[in-house]
């Protein structure tokens, strides 16, 4: 698990300013190219609006969600770039029985396809609905955004952040949060006064700035507590419970069987060595 990583402020993080997004979907294209993901055959308006493809999938690790709304009597668009949040304490990594997910010290949460047994617990656990499954295959694996770990390791920015002309900033998490707060302070009329990702799921490496309330854009409502702690509060008791149940039952049976054992030994002593009589 993420034991090697404790100082999340130094992790690389995305600051995504949705008010600066133009909906060009360059990031979607860059992601497909860098990760060599197949195209999907889609139709317009199969999803909730203009977005295409309609959902993230095994072929689509990120996508721009479109939302129309009315501002001063005019139709406007607001956007939401959906992707893996690279949580500080990822639920996916904590539940994976084989530890296929790792929170790297650089920040991205990576996935080791060679370990995965395909149980889909990560999909159940991820509060943002990120890991996707290769449903079409007989022996499917999980797919998700890896934060372009191979690029980040080499000191480069992720593909989407490199492509994006305006909305995505990439850098140490604490600096990204400071930058976001600066922008809100500078133009309070423009921004919602909250950051999505600062505290969600215990903090993530993707921080969003928006104009509209989060739920209207399709952001999920997520607890502020790191998710692994919810299971760990029960799981940490496991060795204790095992020993307690085991020893108390052993003790109990020793007592309950004692009378009988004594009686038997008594009998044996009386009749001499029993087995030879048979």
């Amino acid at each position: 698990m993420s034991s090697e990583n404790k100082d999340f402020g130094k992790n690389k993080a995305f600051l995504i300013d949705m008010t600066k997004c133009t909906g060009c979907r360059g990031c979607q294209v860059a992601c497909k190219q860098w990760n060599q993901l197949d195209a999907e055959k889609t139709k317009f308006f199969t999803g909730e609006g203009y977005q295409n493809p309609p959902l993230m999938s095994e072929y689509t690790f990120t996508r721009i969600k479109f939302r129309d709304y009315e501002k001063n009597g005019q139709n406007e668009f607001a956007f939401y770039k959906e992707m893996c949040m690279h949580c500080n304490e990822p639920a996916c990594a904590s539940v994976c029985p084989v530890g296929a997910f790792v929170k790297t010290k650089e920040g991205p949460v990576t996935y080791d396809a060679k370990r995965c047994i395909g149980c889909r617990f990560c999909m159940v656990a991820c509060p943002f609905g990120v890991p996707k499954y290769e449903w079409s295959k007989a022996f499917p694996l999980v797919r998700k955004c890896t934060g372009c770990y191979s690029r980040v390791k080499e000191g480069k920015k992720p593909a989407c952040a490199t492509t994006c002309v305006s909305a995505i900033t990439y850098g140490p998490r604490e600096e990204m949060i400071k930058e976001a707060e600066k922008r809100i302070a500078a133009r309070p009329e423009k921004y919602l006064k909250k950051l999505y990702g600062a505290e969600e799921a215990g903090g993530t490496s993707v921080i969003y700035l928006t104009a509209l309330p989060f739920d209207e854009l399709g952001f999920k409502h997520v607890t502020k507590r790191p998710l692994p702690s919810y299971t760990w509060q029960a799981l940490r008791l496991v060795p204790g419970i095992f020993l307690t149940v085991g020893s108390s039952l052993s003790l109990l049976s020793w007592f309950t069987h004692r009378k009988e054992r004594i009686a038997k030994e008594e009998e044996m002593r009386k009749s001499g060595s029993a087995p030879k009589e048979g």
Binding site: S94, V95, C96, P97, V98, R115, T231, A234, V238
Partner: peptide, 14 residues
């Protein structure tokens, strides 16, 4: 794999 790559934080492992 569950027997080789332990992850004691996972209820599924347990």
């Amino acid at each position: 794999h569950t027997m080789v790559y332990w992850n004691p934080h996972s209820p599924m492992f347990e």
